[in-house]
Design a protein around this nucleic acid. Structure first.
Length: 520
RNA sequence: GGCCCCUUAGUCUAGUGGUUAGGACGCAUGGUUCUCAGCCAUGAAUCAGGGGUUCGACUCCCCUAGGGGCUACCA
């Protein structure tokens, strides 16, 4: 007898009441990874039973965030599926039908208690330091009375009839066994007086009817799970497997929320982090593979992910580590891909001329790029054909090497290659150009470079060093002012490459300009 | 208040009775270099506290403390 193989079905069920934060994204990711690893189905369901707080913008934002992260779903509000609708507000009849069944079977009942009465009850229980729970006031109302009050249109809710004694038990893939006495639970509400289901009820009805096999969610739901287990039993639905993930905490160790700054997925998207890097880092928040590997490509993550290795401890989101992971992923991108990304961003921000077009759908010849090929004399580095412009951009990206860690910083780091107006570090200018007699030297260096017949790296370096020798100074003493004049700051890639890629005309112009400004 | 969960360096973690408690980020120092990044090397830093159990506890049990969650007609 082989056990029947049940299809693995998981879901991410956000409520559209805010942006997608890293905690939600992590939950979505683990579900997605599990589905992709097992060949299962990943469902997106929108839990909008809180009519007040749910918004369309929030829904759009969540979808945008998940798409950016590359967490694609197989069934959901936009693409449908066999078990729709995938928005709770459209599933009303399902909840009412299941709730009605429970009432008919005596497993749930109508309650007419007013908010006022409940308030007073709570107050009283707090005073007497009692457990705060519903007292079962309407639990055994006469059926005729119920019918009469219902007919009279009296506001009411439907409550679950919690068994008096006994206990509930369930297994959690990451927590192990969980048991709690029924006394701790009370007759919680299933259907609110506005007719909408409560979270605890809707989640069970939906997970069951959508055939969810594994409920993977944040561990803030752990305490609610026993109630849900009761509901599964009462409704006669098979119990799914549960996996409660540790929370992700903000810097102050409290639950993540808006006030925790950069914890929105939007932030990372807008700042041009790499989605694969974010996925990698998020995966590490509460999961580890072993004691050595922590850098994973997406396929590697799918292959290695396992619910069994999910940690029980809450984790704090560490931005430094996120940036590090991002840098590592960026480092691993090939030159073409990097250049493509930089190109895109530079264009967006107006750093590139309008005629700078590269058709990335066609192979780009990078043979000349690797960085050792001299640029032939007479070939201007500015302007030129699109492929020449691209070639130059690729070389710039190439010489940037690992200095470019975050795509977002590309414009400020290499902007001086494309615009003549770039920020100049005043202090550096004073120190390296005006002070130390740099101004006069720069003008003379400009002359020397201008006379160069072959403007390629070797010749440039030779010229600069020879000039330093002639002056009887260290090459560095010439290079520093040069860097400030050319790039505006004290940080740049190899200065000789900068000179070559800037081109003779721009180099000479900036050197003379700086010299003049310094009064040389 | 009641109940539940969690506890290895600042942070993320490996570890399941015997280890010099391993790795990573961050930090510090040194090396490489025209600066920076990178890379290499080195270093500081951890089992929350207290009781047990045991020949032996980071590992098992109990208590305390701290943190988190649930206790809503929020999800």
């Amino acid at each position: 007898m082989t056990e029947q193989q049940v299809q693995i079905r998981v879901r991410f069920a956000p409520s559209p009441t805010g942006h997608l934060h890293v905690g939600g994204a992590r939950t979505a990711l683990y579900n997605w990874l599990y589905a992709r690893k097992t060949g299962g189905v990943f469902v997106l369901r929108i839990e909008d039973t809180d009519a007040q707080r749910s918004t369309a913008e929030s829904y759009e934002g969540i979808v945008r965030g998940m798409r950016w992260l590359g967490l694609d779903w197989d069934e959901g509000p936009d693409c449908g599926g066999e078990y729709g609708p995938y928005v709770q507000s459209a599933r009303g009849v399902l909840y009412h039908s299941d709730a009605g069944r429970l009432v008919d079977e005596g497993k749930a009942y109508y309650c007419f208690c007013t908010a006022h009465r409940l308030e007073a009850l709570k107050f009283e229980q707090r005073e007497s330091r009692d457990q705060i729970r519903y007292d079962g006031h309407c639990r055994d109302l006469d059926t005729d009375e119920v019918a009469r009050r219902l007919a009279a249109g009296e506001p009411h809710v439907i409550r679950f009839r919690m068994p008096e004694g006994g206990e509930v038990r369930f297994d959690d893939v990451v927590r192990g066994e969980f048991t709690i006495a029924n006394e701790e639970l009370d007759d919680f509400v299933l259907i609110k007086s506005d007719g909408l289901p409560t979270y605890n009820f809707a989640v069970v009805v939906d997970d069951a009817r959508m055939r969810i096999s594994h409920v993977i969610r944040g561990d803030d739901h752990l305490s609610n799970t026993p109630r849900q287990v009761h509901l599964y039993a009462a409704l006669g639905y098979p119990l799914p497997k549960f996996a409660h993930l540790p929370m992700i905490l903000g810097g102050d160790r409290t639950r993540l929320s808006k006030r925790h700054g950069a914890v929105s997925v939007d932030f990372y998207r807008e700042n041009h982090y790499l989605p694969d890097a974010m996925v990698n880092y998020l995966a590490l928040l509460g999961w580890s593979f072993d004691d050595r590997q922590e850098l994973f490509s997406r396929p590697a993550l799918i292959e290695k992910f396992s619910l069994k290795r999910v940690s029980k401890n809450p984790a704090m989101f560490d931005n430094d580590k996120m940036e590090y992971i991002n840098a590592e992923h960026f480092k691993r991108l090939d030159l073409l891909r990097k250049t493509q990304l930089v190109h895109e961003l530079l264009r967006e921000q107006g750093y590139l001329p309008g005629d700078f077009e590269v058709d990335f759908t066609r192979p780009v010849d990078l043979k000349l790029v690797p960085g050792t090929q001299p640029v032939a004399a007479g070939e201007s580095q500015e302007g030129g054909t699109p492929s020449k412009q691209f070639h130059r951009l690729a070389m710039i990206v190439q010489i940037m090497g690992n200095r470019l860690k975050l795509l977002r910083d590309a414009p400020s780091q290499i902007g001086y290659f494309f615009k003549d107006e770039f920020p100049v570090d005043r202090d550096a200018f004073e120190r390296h150009v005006r002070g130390a007699g740099g101004a006069r030297r720069l003008a003379r260096l400009a002359d020397a470079l201008e006379g160069l017949r072959y403007f390629e790296r070797g010749a440039v370096e030779e010229t600069v060093r020879a000039f330093a020798d002639e002056l009887g100074i260290e090459a560095g003493e010439l290079i520093h002012p040069c860097r400030v004049a050319l790039t505006g700051g004290t940080v740049s890639p190899d200065i000789f490459w900068v000179i070559v890629l800037l081109g003779k005309a721009k180099t000479v112009e900036r050197l003379r300009g700086a010299s003049a400004r310094a009064g040389g």
